[in-house]
Design a protein around this nucleic acid. Structure first.
Lengths: 338, 338
DNA sequence: GAATCAAATGTAAGCGCTTACACTCGCGGG
DNA sequence: CCCGCGAGTGTAAGCGCTTACATTTGATTC
C-alpha cells in the first residue's frame, strides 16, 4: 500500500498548532515576537510534521536569501581552497550560506554565473580580482548587488576589495633573488590576459629586473595556465633555451611544483643546478622536496575579512572598504645563493 | 543625480511587447508555442530591458529548478575535483545546473546540507558513498528526491549508484605488492568510521593479507584523516615502530604524498628503503618523485555517468541503476621488488 | 473606571513566475 | 453555410512564504 505524502507547508503547521501562518512564520524567523507557550506548540508541530521551510517561497516573500555567491576561477587546484573555506566558515557564523561556482578562467562563463547567482537572489557576491567587462559591473550596480573583490588590493576601484599587492609582493621576492646573486632569471607566469593577479606578479619581477639595471630582453618569460603539467613543460623549455637560467621564478606554487618535478626527471638538482620560487604558499609548498621558497598569502585571513566586510556591506553597516593584507617571503630550500 | 532603477519583471516585458505575461513566459520556456512575430517582439523587449527571470519565482511556479545538488566530503584536496568537474560539464550539457557543498566528512553537516539543497528545490542529489543515517534516506524517500550515490558500487542498495569496488580494487594492489616479495606491510588508512570507501580499501588489504596466510596482528594500520600532513606524521610513526615496514600502502594519494615527503626529510630512499603506494591517481601522483604506484579511478567517466543516470532518474526515463566502473593498477616507481 | 499602551496574534496582500483553461480567429470539410 | 478544429493568445489561479496593518487582550496610569 502506498500512501502519497505531500510535503508539509506553513499552512499545515499552522493548522496543526492551531495558530495562524503569521505566527508560525514569526516563530521561525523572529521568535522573540511570540509567547513561549505558542512557540513551544508550534515547534512541536514543526517537528511532528518534519516541516522544512521552502527556500524559494521564503526568498520571494522576504526578498532576502541570506546566501552569498562566490565565483572562483578554478576548483581544480588548491589556490583558492583555503581562502574560500575561511570565507565559508565566517559566513556561516554570520548566518549566511555560500554558493560557489567556478568559471574556469573564462570571462563569459563568469558573467553567466554572476547572472545566475543574482537571479537566485544572492544578497552579495565575492569575485576574484577586478578584470572583467564594464557591462558586468554595470549590471551589478543596476541591481544593487553588494560585491567584494578579493585576491587583489584595489584602493582606487569603486568596489570593495580585500587582498594584497601582487606586484609589490613579487617585486620584493625578485629583489631578494637578485640580491642573492642571480643574474640569469627566467619566469613561468600565469596567463596575464584578463588576470590582474598574474599580471601584477609578472610586472613585479619586471620592476625589480629593470630597477636593478637589467634589460627586459634578457628576461625569458613563458605564460601558461596554472597547471602542474604546464609548469613542467615550461621548465623544460626554459632549460633548453640558449642560456640556462640560474633561477626560475614561477607565478604560483602549482607552476613551481610542476617545474620541480620535471627538474628531477631531467636530473637537475634544486637548488644547486637551478633555483625555483613560487607564490601563494599552498599546503603543498612546504611538502615539496626541497621545500619551496615562496610568497605567503594569508588566505584564511583574506577569506575571513572578505566575509565580514561583505556582510557589513549587505547590512548597510559600512560602505565600500579596501583592506590590504600583508604577505611575507618564506625562505625555504628551493632558492640558493649563486 | 541618482535614478532608482527597479528590476524588470515579466510584467514589464509583457507591457513593453504588448502581449500577456503568459506569452512572454512561453517565449522563454517553450518558444515553439509562440508565433515567430510575437517571439521576436518579446525578445526585443527582453533585451531592451535587460530582463533576467527570477529564479525563485520560477522554481515556485514550476516546481522544477533544473538544478541538482552535490555534497562532497571535502574540497580541500583534489580527490573529488576531477569527477565533479565532469559531472558538472555533463549536467550543463543536459540543461541542468550544479550546486556543490562540502560536508567536511561530518555526517550531521551533510544532513543539514541535504535539507538545504532540497529546500532550495534541487531536482536531484549526488552523494558520495552510502554510509549515512537511515533517517536521511527516509527523508529523501518521503520527498521523492532522485538520488545518486557515487564513488562506490552498491548493487544491493535501493539507491542508484555509480562507482567501483573499493575493496576488491585495493585487494588487487595488495596481492601485487605481496607477490613482489613484501612481507612487512604497513597501512596508512583514511578514517574508516562513516566512510565506506576507506573501509573497503582497508579491508581489501586485509583480505589479501589473510588470504596470503599472514596474521592481521602483523599488519600495522594507522587511521588518519586524508591530509598531506597526516600522511607525513603516520609515515614517521610507522618507521619508528618495532619492525620497519618494507612497504607502506596508503588509503589515497594524498596520504601517500605526505608519506613520501616525510620519507625524504628523514633521508629514506623510495623505493629502495621503503616502497609507497596510493589510491585514486590524482594528477599529483605522476608528478611526485618517484612517481606514485597507485590505483587509477576513472573519475571523469564516473562523473559523466553519474550525471546522465541521475538526469534519467529525474526524467523518469529510467529506474534505479547500478554502474560498476573498472579501475586499474598503475605501476610507477614508488613500489619496488623486495 | 476610562483611557492608554504594549504585547500577542490574526488577516490578507503581495513577491514574480507558470500553466490550466477559456477564448478568438481563420480554415477546411460536410 | 455551419461546424469543428488547431494555432495563437489571454485570463487568472495559484506556488509557499513574509509582513504591514488591524485586532484583541490585559496591565498600567491617572
Amino acid at each position: 500500500m502506498t500512501t502519497s505524502f505531500s510535503i508539509p507547508t506553513l499552512d499545515d503547521v499552522a493548522r496543526a498548532a492551531g495558530v495562524s501562518t503569521a505566527t508560525v512564520s514569526r516563530c521561525l524567523n523572529a521568535e522573540q515576537k511570540v509567547s513561549k507557550d505558542t512557540r513551544d506548540r508550534v515547534m512541536e508541530a514543526v517537528d511532528a510534521l518534519g516541516y522544512t521551510p521552502n527556500f524559494n517561497a521564503r526568498a520571494m516573500a522576504a526578498k532576502r536569501t541570506y546566501t552569498i555567491g562566490a565565483i572562483i576561477p578554478t576548483m581544480e587546484n588548491a589556490i583558492f581552497a583555503r581562502g574560500l573555506q575561511a570565507f565559508q566558515e565566517t559566513l556561516h557564523g554570520l548566518g549566511y550560506n555560500l554558493l560557489v561556482s567556478s568559471s574556469a578562467y573564462r570571462p563569459e562563463l563568469e558573467a553567466e554565473q554572476i547572472r545566475g547567482l543574482v537571479a537566485r537572489g544572492a544578497d552579495g557576491l565575492l569575485l576574484i580580482g577586478y578584470e572583467r567587462e564594464q557591462s558586468v559591473y554595470d549590471y551589478l550596480g543596476k541591481r544593487g548587488i553588494p560585491t567584494m573583490l578579493a585576491w587583489s588590493y584595489l584602493p582606487d576601484r569603486p568596489h570593495a576589495s580585500v587582498g594584497f599587492d601582487n606586484r609589490a609582493s613579487m617585486r620584493v621576492l625578485a629583489d631578494r633573488v637578485i640580491s642573492m646573486g642571480h643574474r640569469r632569471v627566467a619566469v613561468i607566469s600565469g596567463i596575464v590576459d584578463g588576470n590582474d593577479r598574474a599580471e601584477g606578479r609578472l610586472n613585479g619581477i619586471k620592476d625589480s629586473w629593470v630597477a636593478n639595471g637589467f634589460d627586459l630582453a634578457d628576461l625569458p618569460v613563458i605564460e601558461t595556465p596554472y597547471e602542474i603539467e604546464n609548469g613542467a613543460t615550461a621548465f623544460e623549455t626554459l632549460m633548453n633555451g640558449t642560456q640556462k637560467p640560474s633561477v626560475i621564478m614561477c607565478g604560483n606554487d602549482v607552476l613551481a611544483a610542476g617545474a620541480m618535478t620535471r627538474a628531477k626527471e631531467l636530473g637537475y638538482d634544486i637548488p644547486n643546478d637551478v633555483s625555483v620560487t613560487g607564490f601563494d604558499d599552498i599546503e603543498l609548498a612546504k611538502h615539496l622536496h626541497p621545500s619551496l621558497t615562496t610568497v605567503h598569502v594569508p588566505h584564511r585571513e583574506m577569506g575571513r575579512t572578505a566575509a565580514r566586510e561583505l556582510v557589513n556591506l549587505i547590512d548597510g553597516s559600512s560602505t565600500t572598504v579596501h583592506r590590504q593584507l600583508n604577505v611575507s617571503i618564506i625562505m625555504r630550500n628551493s632558492l640558493a645563493q649563486v
